[in-house]
C-alpha cells in the first residue's frame, strides 16, 4: 500500500468492515420492516385493514334490545342494568343475523355468577360477594336470584 494510506491501511479495512456492517443492517432492515410501518404510529398501518377484515363477533346491546324488550324491562333499575348483554351471553352476532336458526345456549349460572361474586379480598367492600359453597349449599344461583334483576325482593 502506498501514498497517504500507507500507515492507515488497517484503519481503512476496519472502516470498511463498519461500513459493510451498517449497510448489511440497513438492507436487512429494509427487507424486514413491513411497508406502512410508522404511517399512523408505532405499528404497521396494514394491521388496521387486517383488523377490519376480521369477521364481527359481537352484535352490540342495541341489537339485542330491539327484540328482547321483556328483558329490557326486567333489567330496568336493577344492579345488572348496565352490564352488556354479551358480557354474560357471549358474542352473538350470528344469532342477531339469524335469530330463529341460531339459538344461543343459556349461560351456566354456577360458572357465570361465581366469576364476579365469589368472595375475593381484592374487590371493593361494597361489591356483593359470597362464599358460594356456604351461601347456596352448592345449589343453582338462579333458584333464588333472577339473572337480569338479581335483588331478592
Amino acid at each position: 500500500m502506498s501514498g497517504w494510506l500507507k500507515d492507515k491501511g488497517h484503519l481503512a479495512r476496519m472502516a470498511g468492515l463498519f461500513a459493510f456492517g451498517i449497510t448489511a443492517f440497513l438492507v436487512f432492515r429494509w427487507v424486514m420492516v413491513p411497508p406502512g410501518f410508522g404511517l399512523y404510529g408505532h405499528y404497521r398501518a396494514g394491521a388496521l385493514d387486517d383488523a377490519r377484515a376480521r369477521p364481527l363477533q359481537y352484535a352490540g346491546r342495541a341489537e339485542c334490545e330491539g327484540c328482547h324488550t321483556d328483558i329490557v324491562e326486567a333489567r330496568q333499575g336493577s344492579r345488572h342494568a348496565r352490564i352488556g348483554c354479551e358480557a354474560c351471553h357471549g358474542p352473538l352476532i350470528k344469532h342477531a343475523q339469524a335469530p330463529t336458526e341460531i339459538k344461543p345456549t343459556r349461560p351456566d349460572g354456577r360458572v357465570l355468577c361465581v366469576r364476579c361474586h365469589e368472595t375475593n379480598p381484592w374487590k371493593p367492600k361494597g361489591f356483593p360477594q359470597v362464599k358460594v359453597a356456604d351461601h347456596s349449599d352448592n345449589g343453582p344461583c338462579t333458584a333464588c336470584h333472577k339473572a337480569h334483576a338479581p335483588k331478592i325482593s
Binding site: 500507507k6 491501511g9 468492515l17
Partner: peptide, 19 residues
C-alpha cells in the same frame, strides 16, 4: 482479527495510539 493487515510500523502504531 488483524483484518489481514500486518503493518505494525511505528507510524501506524502511533496513529493507533492517537485514535
Amino acid at each position: 482479527m488483524a483484518l489481514w493487515s500486518d503493518n505494525i510500523s511505528p507510524a501506524s502504531l502511533a496513529l493507533d495510539d492517537r485514535i
